[in-house]
């Protein structure tokens, strides 16, 4: 089998036309860091490949604290164009230097577990995804985007074109736990965005990587924390709930048993860090 065609459209219209025409027989790449290894290894033989890196989707737009990141913005682009420490942390811990120069914000959403260490931060911020097809444009939440193992809410003729982030309120923390320094893949990655009023948690979003088939929110742990102060007992109960509720992948780097333990440990640490941040304010 051979790849029949490599398309490099220069306009979104052109790209959406190709998507509409070829649907699932068209593989989409932007940075190439997910598709190329599989093609080089002979694991996949897409009939046609569309490379969307020329669509001018490498932008960052800000208005009223809301940020929109183009789908083909590279992780290095995030580091060059965005000052926000939480997003920088996440970009910084996604791959080694050359991979950050190639891998994109949009592509990271499609990374197989336990990759997707930028996406997990987006999930903690309740990001929305812009999805386009020839005659329609829609926004869906990132939670909706992840439909299940190896499955997303994106149709064959659709393209992810942007990610929109609401203003970041409250405190954030990001931890990627690995065996060795990046580009080592995650054992677990913990991303938390938490808002407090007078020391009481109003809203919290806990997103984990290495806890399921894609980056996942830990709603049960969130419910435990909301309305509580960040004290040892609440933190321990939340971390325990996350560890129990997780369905960690098992791979050459870590077993599910170990990942579960590390979810508990690193989420507990992350929450303690947020508690200490409050105390030093």
């Amino acid at each position: 089998m051979t790849i029949e065609a490599y398309y490099r459209p220069e306009t979104l219209e052109e790209a959406l036309d190709l998507s509409a025409e070829y649907r699932s027989s068209l593989d989409i790449i932007s940075g190439g860091t997910i598709a190329m290894p599989a093609i080089n290894e002979g694991k996949t033989f897409p009939a046609r490949v569309m490379d969307i890196r020329d669509l001018d989707l490498d932008f960052v737009e800000s208005s009223n604290g809301e940020r929109t990141l183009g789908a083909t913005l590279t992780l290095t682009g995030v580091l060059e164009k965005i000052d926000e420490p939480f997003l920088r942390d996440a970009a910084r811990h996604t791959g080694g230097w050359s991979i950050r120069n190639m891998g994109t914000v949009g592509g990271n959403l499609f990374s197989p577990p336990p990759l997707g260490d930028f996406a997990v931060a987006l999930l903690a911020l309740d990001a929305e995804i812009e999805v386009q097809q020839r005659d329609e444009q829609r926004w869906i939440s990132l939670s909706e985007f992840y439909a299940g193992p190896k499955s997303t809410a994106i149709e064959a003729d659709e393209l992810v074109t942007a990610v929109r982030l609401p203003p970041i309120d409250g405190d954030t923390t990001y931890t990627k736990y690995t065996r060795s320094q990046e580009p080592a893949r995650a054992i677990v990655t913990v991303a938390v965005n938490l808002e407090r009023q007078d020391g009481v948690v109003e809203t919290v979003r806990i997103a984990l990587n290495g806890a399921g088939p894609h980056p996942v929110r830990m709603h049960e742990a969130e419910d435990i924390l909301e309305g509580e102060r960040l004290e040892r007992d609440a933190i321990e109960r939340a971390a325990e709930a996350a560890a129990e509720g997780a369905d960690p992948p098992e791979d050459a780097i870590a077993s599910a048993w170990y990942r579960r333990k590390m979810i508990r440990h690193h989420l507990s640490n992350a929450l303690c860090e947020l508690r200490n941040q409050e105390e030093t304010k």
Binding site: Q181, R185, E250, A252
Partner: peptide
Amino acid sequence: DPYYPDIDHKPGSFGEYSLPGPSE
């Protein structure tokens, strides 16, 4: 040969083979 029970857990790429990096 990671000690997990499934053959699928064998490292399939450099990225899945644990090695210490320069900072370790």
